[in-house]
Simulated scan of single mutants.
Amino acid sequence: MINRAVIWTLIAFISFAGIALGGYDLSGSEKAESLSTSSSALQGIEANVGALAGAEIPQMTASAAGTEQAFSTTQTPTNTELLTLLPFDVEASQSTQVFFKGSYLGWNGFEVQYPRASPGLWIERSGSWSWYATMPLGSWARELLYVPTASPISIFEIYPSGYVMKHDLGSVPPGYYYIWYYADTPGRHLSLFALSNSASNAVTIDVYSIPHQKVTPTDPKKECEKNSFCHWVNGQCLCTMPDPVDPEKEKCEQKSYCDWVNGQCLCTMPDPVDPEKEKCEQKSYCDWVNGQCLCRGLDPIPEPSPTPDEATICQQKPGCHWANGQCLCTGLGGVNSGGLLGNDEEA
């Protein structure tokens, strides 16, 4: 634990009251005092308190995030939570570990070893409560306090510039509490709290700056309509999330004779191709019914036989020849071929 004489030396050097922004609040508060120490006194206090806080604290101030990063958020707590000691649920935190005597202990082992008469202070990291952490500028993290006895409580923060900020938190019953800490200034910070007759260990916090990134303004309507399932309506982006693609359903519906029903692919197998049926259905006036090709309309009219050539028939008759579009015959070659009778006489 920290040397009590160092803490009381720190408090004794406080002078020159003023107004500044506190690390536990965003604005000046009636509960807060901005104080300063002489530079030589501050250097001695920081050296002693930092050395006693634990071997895990690096000598150099962290300028970027590392494995020691606090479990922080950029969400500002409500006004009722600021500069207020809030009850801490130990039972809900049994899986985390607590730093004590140079190592991390489970809650059960920690509570057995920790001296119940001593106040303690830790900052939250992922899965543990520690005496050291890094935080990005502008973020919030919880600090855990163990209060051994009912007493007026004041929490102190030493800023990198040399200011010491004091916050009066009132008096609470013995137990575990937490308070929100705000990383408002880059550099190394030290915080601790004091009761009427004792003081806690110090917690070291390295606050680092986040490089500024230029953000290009975007059109919310255009961003909304990039999603095919979203629509811009009355100044709002309304989205209807599409059903997830089911590869089996997609494969099923690619078959014309299958349907996806209640999570199953139900198929009616197509009839095998019948060449007679296919030939029948190619005729617009025919239908394939019960294995037969039934056609509508009259049967086709047979084509007429070609008409004989009258000239040819004429010339095939004895004594006849075709002239001027008519068949002319003489008596020669007839029945009475030796006489001079014409056709009329022969008839």
Rank of each mutant, 00 (worst) to 15 (best):
A65I: 04
H189P: 00
L137A: 01
T80K: 11
I210R: 08
S95Y: 05
W129V: 00
Y114Q: 13
Q94W: 06
L190C: 07
L85E: 06
A62Y: 04
S139I: 01
A51S: 13
A64Y: 08
A41M: 14
T240C: 04
S72G: 08
T9G: 04
L169F: 12
G120K: 06
P247T: 12
G44T: 12
T149F: 03
P270I: 00
L341G: 12
T134V: 02
P302D: 10
G187E: 09
G102F: 00
L21A: 09
A64G: 03
T37C: 09
G319R: 08
V233F: 09
N262V: 05
Q59T: 15
S305C: 04
F229Y: 15
V233R: 13
I45M: 11
A70D: 00
I313E: 14
P242R: 03
E157I: 04
E281M: 01
I2A: 00
T330G: 08
L328N: 06
P173V: 12
A51M: 03
Y159P: 02
Y114A: 12
C329S: 07
C224N: 08
V98H: 05
A62F: 01
D259A: 10
E68A: 11
E225Q: 11
T61Q: 10
A117W: 07
I155C: 03
D243L: 11
Q282S: 01
H231Q: 15
A64D: 08
C265H: 08
Y104M: 06
Q264Y: 05
S103W: 06
C293W: 02
G187V: 01
L52F: 05
E143I: 09
S15N: 15
L86F: 10
P174G: 04
M269P: 10
A41I: 14
A12D: 15
G54M: 01
S305W: 02
Y146E: 00
W131C: 06
Y181Q: 08
T73A: 06
K279R: 09
G170D: 10
L137M: 12
E56L: 15
S284R: 05
T218V: 14
D299I: 05
L21P: 02
P242G: 08
A92R: 07
P186M: 01
N48D: 13
T76L: 06
Q315D: 10
V6S: 15
N290C: 02
I11M: 13
P300K: 10
S228R: 07
E33L: 10
D246C: 11
H231C: 01
S228I: 02
T96N: 13
Y114F: 14
M165T: 14
P247D: 09
F229C: 13
R4Y: 13
I313W: 07
V233T: 14
G235V: 10
V207I: 11
E223I: 06
C280F: 01
A32N: 13
V215I: 15
Q236L: 13
V164P: 08
